[in-house]
């Protein structure tokens, strides 16, 4: 009986340790959320979503100011990045999973792992060399390319594992009725893996959407809304993470609270992405 009691006590101690570590993990998240909301909520008004930022004097003189150009720029750049990254990333993932014997496969794997481990700021540098230098100007396009470099290795990896989770027998069944390899992958394996594919893409999207470093010398930032939407692609463009950073290091208290408000928007965006990803993952199982 004594040993049973001892075991019971040990169980209890282990349990409380686990609860404690959960709290330690959750606490910073809660602190961040509360802090961000308390500081930013006051700046989240109509102007915030409808006005451009302008010069600091606007805020100091109490004229309307907001981050509409930042939100629009973020949407344009993030979706363009996604548009560039999905075909390339998924293509690489398909290659890794479906053609493991292909002679380019080992090289592809090494390159993808390297890209995945590369600091985000270096991806910005890469896009700077590839796009900004030839174009002669900072641009949303360059920002999108930099973010695509963030997304591609994540999408490639998640695509690979989503496809690998589909039983091999499905592919053989497809081949046995005379379908070519690529048709089997597109029409039987990928639909079966669709939740995993979307989940991976959302995770890559959310990761890239939160990155400021690759954007600092690619899309650069802009206090104003361009006259034409093409101006976002071809000229300096604002994005939430980079704007958050520059508002935070500015000397104006009004801009500080706008920075917190930008953080709220960014957080909500990322939480929606991850939430959808989690929902889809649960639905799959």
């Amino acid at each position: 009986m004594k040993t049973l009691l001892q075991r019971n006590i040990r169980d209890r101690i282990m349990e409380s340790l686990l609860v404690l570590s959960t709290i330690v993990v959750l606490l910073p998240l809660v602190i961040i959320l509360v802090h961000v909301v308390i500081n930013g909520i006051s700046a989240l008004n109509w102007d915030f979503f409808t006005q451009e930022l302008g010069s600091p004097s606007r805020a100091m003189q109490g004229r309307p100011t907001g981050l509409v150009h930042t939100i629009l720029g973020t949407v344009v750049i993030d979706f363009l990045a996604l548009f560039l990254a999905v075909p390339i990333g998924m293509g690489a993932g398909i290659m890794l999973s479906e053609f493991p014997d292909h002679k380019l496969n080992p090289t592809l794997r090494i390159m993808n792992d390297t890209l995945n481990g590369m600091p985000a700021i270096l991806k910005g540098l890469l896009a700077f060399v590839l796009i900004v230098k030839p174009m002669g100007t900072f641009s949303g396009l360059a920002g999108a390319v930099a973010l695509a470099f963030v997304m591609i290795p994540i999408i490639a990896r998640t695509t690979e594992s989503a496809l690998m989770s589909i039983p091999w027998s499905i592919r053989e069944a497809g081949l046995a009725i005379g379908l070519p390899r690529w048709r089997v992958v597109l029409s039987t394996v990928m639909p079966a893996a669709r939740f995993g594919l979307v989940t991976g893409t959302l995770i890559a999207f959310a990761r890239a959407a939160g990155e400021a470093a690759p954007l600092l010398f690619t899309s650069f930032g802009n206090n104003y809304l361009p006259n034409h939407w093409l101006g976002m692609l071809l000229g300096p463009t604002d994005t939430l993470p980079q704007r958050l950073y520059s508002l935070a290091i500015s000397p104006y208290s009004h801009w500080h609270s706008m920075g917190w408000a930008a953080a709220i928007v960014l957080l909500v965006f990322v939480i929606i992405c991850f939430g959808t990803a989690r929902y889809l993952t649960r639905k799959k199982t």
């Binding site: 589909i166 053989e172 069944a173 497809g174 039987t188 639909p191 079966a192």
Partner: peptide
């Protein structure tokens, strides 16, 4: 095949 393999989707 030995095991049934309907295309899942």
């Amino acid at each position: 095949f030995q095991k049934p393999t309907p295309f899942p989707t």
